[in-house]
Design a binder for these strands. Structure first.
Lengths: 219, 219
DNA sequence: GTCTATATTAAGATAGAC
DNA sequence: GTCTATCTTAATATAGAC
């Protein structure tokens, strides 16, 4: 693997683990057993590394968000879709856990991240409309707008909230928890015949949580 | 006014305006027309200033959160209560807009902020229970737990979300918007006879928003 | 492409005069 | 209490040899 790619890969891992602000160019070089000078041969500095990582993240995210527009949607698809979206966020969690810091220090990212937020809102808007059309969801229009905002807020800041709460969950469970939290926000607006579906999700989540926590305790 | 107090006051204003990380001890001293040396005579460093501001914030917040335990509650009280809570957060918004950064760099604050989050959750828990008892709210228990988490998430990260969205709202409207957003999350769980109350709030909010934005455009 | 050695910068902090 | 002058530290970044 080329040094340039190893730098990106190592940086992402370190940023996710320690937070972008706590990782210096020297740290990245040390972790890879190369010299700082070598790192600066490949990238002008940390900003360029972060920018590269963000662009990859951004590009992939756009594609994920646009995916459901293609196919027809049911309530289980929506659940799976949320899972994919949140997993992608999780893979680049350093961007989210240090969002304000990063947006202040890298002004280029600011604009793009904002655009991504609106993309999230659009996706929530389109999906909620489709669910309403299909009779899966019933909700007054002004509450629907607020619900979409709330979903975007949750997608963007759940990782921060979790960090503040510090429950030290295994990563796998963290993602399930985030998705279930969003499902719970949507649940009161599901048509009555879908209450059962939410309860199934709740049961699935609780069993999974018990199972994962059990495994974590054993090891 | 004593220099020590002026330092705290000036720091709070600068932190709120520019973000804590972007304000140096020299900036604070310059703003007050005193020397950096003088500032360091009063405080050991920025950490002590931030710590002092946080303690004041924390102390006041604890009292605000505990207030409703005293009196009996109706739906209008809850609305007003939210307003008071959020206004206090807004007054110390630098703590919230740089929450991760601050918690990483000031480990003392980390613990206290986490405690405050649980205090928020407890308040949401107590109030939701009271509203249920009084028949104002109807909600399954597992959704109630998630609703409380969602309210705590909104209280803690709404300012970050708003910043990312960058709507450049007048401050007054920003607070109303946050409170109305939280009301909208609760609304689907209000007993039917309180739907009218939510619609009133919605109308009030929309009129207010139109009024404030009109005034802002004129000036 | 990669290394070692060194320069630059900016924030945080202190010493000692007044 | 307040000032000026200066030190320390740590991250970022570059020069030049190999």
């Amino acid at each position: 693997m080329k040094t340039r790619d190893r730098i990106l890969q190592t940086s992402l891992a370190l940023f996710n683990a320690e937070g972008e602000a706590n990782v210096t160019t020297v740290d990245i070089a040390n972790e890879m057993d190369i010299s700082p000078g070598n790192l600066y041969y490949h990238f002008k500095g940390k900003e360029e590394i972060v920018g590269n990582l963000f662009n990859t993240f951004d590009h992939e995210f756009q594609q994920i968000l646009d995916a459901p527009a293609a196919g027809s949607l049911n309530s289980e698809d929506a659940w799976f879709y949320l899972y994919v979206v949140f997993e992608h966020i999780f893979n680049y969690r350093f961007l989210y856990r240090n969002i304000n810091d990063i947006m202040e220090r890298y002004s280029g990212i600011n604009r793009q991240f904002r655009r991504l937020l609106f993309h999230k809102l659009d996706a929530a808007d389109a999906i909620s409309k489709e669910l309403i059309e299909k009779g899966i969801m019933v909700i007054p229009e002004n509450q629907r707008i607020r619900l979409c905002e709330n979903i975007a807020l949750n997608l963007t800041f759940w990782l921060n909230y979790d960090q503040l709460r510090r429950q030290d969950m295994p990563n796998e469970l963290l993602i399930h928890q985030a998705v279930f939290q969003i499902m719970s926000i949507v649940a009161p607006h599901l048509a009555e015949e879908f209450n059962g579906f939410y309860q199934e999700c709740a049961t699935t989540y609780e069993e999974l949580a018990a199972h994962i926590l059990q495994k974590a305790r054993e090891s």
